[in-house]
């Protein structure tokens, strides 16, 4: 089974916060404006939104990673 996960390059991320606006189901901002990602695989119905959040990151810090999970 493969799972889709969001990863952040923490050095690139400068807390613009667009990702949390575009994917509030999985991302919220901490008290300083930096994203906190829910530690769950991305549900299928949210995949397009996750894709859009990744494409909208002004500093290209957000990425989607597919991991194979053996069950």
């Amino acid at each position: 089974m493969s799972e889709l996960h969001l990863t952040i390059d923490r050095i690139k991320c400068d807390g613009r916060g667009l990702c949390a606006e575009l994917l509030p189901e999985l991302i919220h901002l901490d008290d300083w404006g930096y994203p906190i990602i829910a530690p769950v695989p991305i549900p299928n119905q949210l995949a397009p939104h996750a894709q859009r959040a990744v494409a909208s990151c002004p500093v290209l810090a957000l990425a989607l990673k597919r991991t194979i999970r053996s069950k």
């Binding site: 923490r10 991320c13 400068d14 807390g15 901490d30 008290d31 300083w32 404006g33 930096y34």
Partner: peptide
Amino acid sequence: QCGPCFFGLRA
């Protein structure tokens, strides 16, 4: 370099 570390640890 990373916001959560710099601002988080300071707070």
